[in-house]
Design a protein around this nucleic acid. Structure first.
Lengths: 330, 330
DNA sequence: TTGAAAGCGCTAACAT
DNA sequence: ATGTTAGCGCTTTCAA
């Protein structure tokens, strides 16, 4: 089966020259080494004939470098990350890099294995949204000197980061409702314990306390039926404003609200942290905070590339502003 | 800066043994080769101390194999593909494979470059949803004997394929409306020319003709304003049933319908080919054909793995059934 | 104008 | 029980 790939040597033998000559020609250095036009043509032709493909590993082993960047994310099925890595991919491709996306499914163990692989493969750089607490990653990352940019979820102080100020933005949303909330429900998913969400919670809470707004922090079940009854209970309990802290929760909240048949925005108001394509098609449209996903991607790449050239700059944190999209639900 | 990584030899020298011994120990074959416990411990310790990380390229070059699979997709920001590659990733990870996702952004040139890279890196296998017409890909793929499974979008007759029967499924949707359409609008995006969509169009058209249903094939602009006026014109034109041929178009259609303030499903009905998380939260819920994304993923992996072991089976096409989700819009 | 040969880091067959 | 050595396929210096 494995009818061995053609190697440089095969071509050399067939043409009757040395490996070196073939290597020169195939790497476009034929003229530089004054190899005769005819010989060059012959070599190229033969390479084609034998459908020669250089061995990437041999090449990498020899030269040490690979034009490869990894993008490591927790959950690619989340629209936010999908959009992010699409942008990153496009940016990097323009610069001649291969980019591989690796989905960790929020599997911390996998993430760590991956970090080791990263070093093994001596890739050029990495953009990551870590699901691990950073402390477990940093030591691994420090063994290597490969540039890493954290996107969306921050690393530590000394690491580059591009994202938004979740604390501040969440806080500001508390004041975005058209009527001051009598009672505000701050909604999250039951399982997730990521930094970004924790920051948003903290931001919303602090702001409520500062402005003496009555609030309740609520975990919504993954099951829609359960979520519905939670929402229903909240309504009975006097909640008139809903702040969903990410797009997944927002959709669940919306479902719950719909099942309770509320008047929005007259009696009940809601805002989502994270926008979604579908939000503008609801009646009323769902007002949402849009994160500058593309800008996050673009800036992550920009930062990575500058890291790739000048090695010794200290880590920087880039906080990009969000935009509040007013639709009708708030 | 590049303070050279520690190699096997460094450890060997420090401990005072040979490279081979170190290699054995570090690969867990210490006992097999009867290397003394103390020496083993010492070697491992030293490796740790020097924070040794094996060189992936050297290893691959030597052994020929990499436990690596590529998943190549046209557009990762499409929920369908995002879900698909999440499933694939999880399945493959369980089997001990590294999976890299590559997003081509429907860039055909990039896709071809990638195919070459694929061969260069002698990865173990690939799952792909091609954006190129297959004829340009097949010759490249045939140069190698690396197993490839086509998911969602088929390759040629001899290649493995896992997906759905777009022709048949689209046809059946024509009959799924609660009232026989007076006039049916078949909606697509203005730009996309992918096989799957073409099949769906063909299926819907043929079925309309067979059942003498008046229909119109409509390209919806990417711009929502334009899309809205298109929809409005259709309504004026007597269209009472809308069949959106993928999730993107469905959302656009929905927006248009909403802007026209129609009564659904009394006067106007709509169905989407492709489900979306948000559909159940509209009023009425959007009835949709759900593709078995997870099953497509699972079966693609299953097929790839069997290809990986027994080499010489002929290509097979797996057509998985879809499920019609009745909500309220049809 | 071309070829020989060293060596990137690793594994495994073959010696001791 | 451990060391020696021959490559894997490629690039590149040095020699001819």
């Amino acid at each position: 089966m494995k009818e061995k790939r053609t190697s440089l040597d095969d071509i050399a033998k067939k043409v009757g020259v040395s490996k070196a000559t073939v290597s020169f020609v195939l790497n476009g250095k034929g003229d530089e080494f004054n190899i005769s036009k005819e010989k060059q043509a012959l070599i190229k032709e033969t390479a084609n004939e034998l459908s020669y493909v250089p061995n990437f590993f041999a090449k990498s082993l020899r030269q040490g470098s690979t034009k490869t960047i990894w993008v490591v994310l927790a959950d690619i099925s989340n629209a936010f990350y999908a959009e992010l890595c699409k942008t990153v991919q496009e940016q990097l491709y323009e610069k001649g890099y291969n980019v591989f996306i690796v989905n960790t499914s929020d599997n911390k163990e996998l993430e760590q294995t991956l970090m080791r692989e990263l070093i093994q493969r001596s890739i050029d750089g990495m953009i990551i949204s870590p699901s691990n607490k950073i402390d477990t990653l940093i030591p691994i990352l420090q063994e290597t000197h490969i540039p890493v940019v954290f996107a969306d979820r921050p690393g530590d102080e000394n690491a580059d980061f591009v994202g938004v100020d979740n604390y501040k933005e969440a806080g500001s949303l508390v004041h975005a409702f058209s009527k001051k909330p009598k009672k505000l429900a701050i909604l999250v998913q039951s399982n997730s314990h990521v930094v970004t969400l924790e920051e948003r919670i903290r931001g919303a809470k602090d702001e409520c306390e500062k402005s003496s707004i009555d609030f309740e922090l609520v975990s919504l079940s993954a099951d829609q039926e359960n979520a519905n009854s939670t929402i229903s209970a909240l309504l009975k309990n006097g909640v008139d404003s809903f702040l969903a802290l990410n797009n997944v929760v927002a959709l669940k909240t919306l479902g719950g609200l719909k099942s309770c048949n509320v008047q929005m925005p007259e009696n009940i108001r809601m805002i989502s942290f994270d926008d979604s394509e579908a939000f503008s098609f609801f009646e009323p449209g769902i007002s949402a905070l849009r994160q500058p996903i593309q800008e996050i991607g673009i800036n992550s790449v920009k930062r990575l590339l500058s890291r790739l050239s000048e090695t010794q700059t200290p880590g920087e944190h880039f906080m990009l502003p969000c935009e509040f999209i007013q639709r009708g639900s708030h």
